[in-house]
């Protein structure tokens, strides 16, 4: 459908005003909401995600695309709720204690929402107890980000906090951030690691046995 291809192209280009307009137009035309989301917004974001993995585009391009996707999702989200579409999973996301960098976390949140997840954004500088609280409230997947070598240790501290609270086996933990690696995830006992926002969707689905 031409308009959905155009939405996808505009997401790739980062044209957030055009995406908003085109998304509304697609809704007005009566196109299925899930199709607009998947074949328009998510399709465009996936193209950018793949190019990012290959170093063909960089974070600014991803940010612009995510902003464009978000502008379309703001129109679709209320409509999805109206149709009774259930989220495919729930995740609580936060930057660990002492870390106020949130770009990566925000990107992951946008892409996960696009993929159908309910995202509880815990914000930045999140102390261990808040992550534990999310687990106690039944959130099955916890995402933690750290951008600094100095804040990275809080990922392990948080995992220990889950163990002390007796909720470690109730959650899956995924970590990410520029200083983090798969090796570090393995060392500290995290369940998953994602090097970028698009990979985070695949990893989240894997951890919740959705893929």
């Amino acid at each position: 459908m031409q308009i959905l291809e155009e939405i996808a192209r505009k997401v790739v280009d980062g044209g957030y005003l055009e995406v908003k307009e085109l998304t509304q137009s697609a809704v007005n035309q009566g196109i299925n909401i899930k199709d607009i989301l998947d074949q328009g917004l998510v399709a465009g974001m996936s193209v950018v995600g793949e190019r990012f993995k290959k170093n063909e585009v960089f974070l600014p391009n991803v940010l612009m695309a995510a902003r464009a996707m978000k502008s379309g999702m703001e129109i679709l989200e209320p409509l999805l709720i109206e149709t009774g579409t259930e989220p495919i999973g729930r995740i609580a996301l936060g930057a660990v204690q002492g870390d106020i960098h949130d770009i990566g976390k925000n990107l992951v949140a946008i892409v996960l929402k696009g993929a159908g997840f309910e995202v509880i954004d815990l914000g930045v500088n999140v102390p261990p107890q808040r992550f534990v609280k999310a687990a106690k409230e039944g959130v099955p997947l916890i995402g933690m980000s750290a951008l600094l070598g100095t804040t990275m240790p809080f990922m392990k501290i948080n995992i220990e906090a889950f163990e002390e609270a007796g909720v470690r086996d109730q959650v899956k933990i995924i970590i990410g951030g520029a200083v983090v690696s798969q090796a570090y995830a393995d060392q500290i006992g995290a369940d998953g690691y994602a090097p970028d926002a698009v990979s985070a969707v695949d990893e989240a689905k894997r951890l919740l046995s959705l893929s």
């Binding site: 980062g14 974070l59 600014p60 940010l63 612009m64 902003r67 960098h101 949130d102 770009i103 925000n106």
Partner: peptide, 10 residues
């Protein structure tokens, strides 16, 4: 803000 200044470049 890093995110803001990146958007500003566009």
């Amino acid at each position: 803000g890093v995110e803001n200044i990146i958007y500003d470049t566009a």
